[in-house]
């Protein structure tokens, strides 16, 4: 074990009504992450500190929080990247209602996701009910499948965080999900109307904050949101593309292929 030293963590304590930062001192050592420190604080001085976590490997997306004001996974934030000479602030995600301490109620995300049109494959390519597709074609959507649903992108998105458009806007996570479905080589569902209308992709003003906080390094803005905006543009705003479509008059399923 490396050098041990005292550090202060300023942790948000409270529920959805009120709360405040409380300072906790604990001993930290080389290789520790913020979640280790929170567990240590729970063991030493705050056994009632609420914190959601599961895998401690950056794959379950449970321990999302804001560390020194930046949305991060606690389990993937090493202490050696933080300035330990000052108290490290740890607070819950601010785009969702707090349940208690570091735990937020993220169920809004699941309600939004349920309303998204699901995957609808074309008719099977073979008589045995299977499909044929090229690896090159699914590679594009495989990036989106890396999402661990930590909702850090939702947390940092200013449309939700500052403007509270939860009733009108689906947020980056759900555009990644819709991009994965919409760009899938087998999918034939018509969901651009939903992307534009119910999920209001137009609210995104491409500030790329979602991309910056993604722990899976998904290029959310460049590879999911902007291509979806372009497809919405094809379908609803671009008269020349629409004109070409009238002349080509091919069914949607065929166009997507």
């Amino acid at each position: 074990m490396g050098e041990q030293r005292q550090a202060t963590f300023s942790v948000w304590r409270g529920d959805h009504q009120t709360g405040k930062f409380v300072d906790y001192k604990t001993t930290v050592s080389e290789g520790m992450v913020v979640l280790d420190a929170i567990h240590q604080i729970q063991a030493e001085s705050a056994s009632d500190l609420a914190c959601r976590w599961n895998c401690k490997a950056g794959k379950c997306g449970s321990c999302s929080a804001e560390i020194n004001g930046k949305p991060r996974l606690m389990c993937m934030t090493r202490l050696d990247i933080l300035d330990m000479t000052q108290p490290v602030t740890v607070e819950p995600m601010r785009s969702f209602p707090s349940i208690r301490d570091l735990v937020t109620d993220v169920s809004w995300n699941f309600r939004v996701k349920k309303r998204i049109k699901p995957f609808k494959p074309r008719k099977p390519d073979a008589e045995d009910g299977t499909w044929r597709m090229y690896q090159a074609d699914v590679e594009r959507v495989q990036e989106f499948r890396k999402c661990i649903e930590c909702f850090l992108c939702q947390d940092v998105c200013h449309v939700l965080r500052e403007h509270h458009k939860h009733d009108e806007f689906a947020g980056p996570r759900h555009f990644v999900y819709q991009a994965a479905l919409e760009m899938h080589p087998l999918d034939v569902e018509e969901r651009l109307g939903q992307v534009k209308g119910e999920n209001a992709i137009g609210y995104c003003n491409i500030t790329k904050c979602c991309t910056k906080v993604c722990p899976e390094h998904i290029a959310i803005t460049d590879n999911a949101i902007i291509p979806l905006k372009e497809r919405v543009n094809d379908e609803f705003y671009d008269p020349i593309t629409k004109l070409f479509r009238i002349f080509r008059a091919r069914p949607k399923a065929e166009r997507k292929d």
């Binding site: 804001e66 000052q86 607070e91 109620d105 809004w108 309600r111 509270h164 009733d167 689906a170 119910e198």
Partner: peptide, 19 residues
């Protein structure tokens, strides 16, 4: 899309815990 049954506090200009 009325999926949100909660109210979040409004924050002021420049309000952040970023260091």
């Amino acid at each position: 899309m009325s999926n949100a049954d909660f109210h979040l506090p409004q924050r002021g200009l420049g309000s952040t815990a970023r260091r």
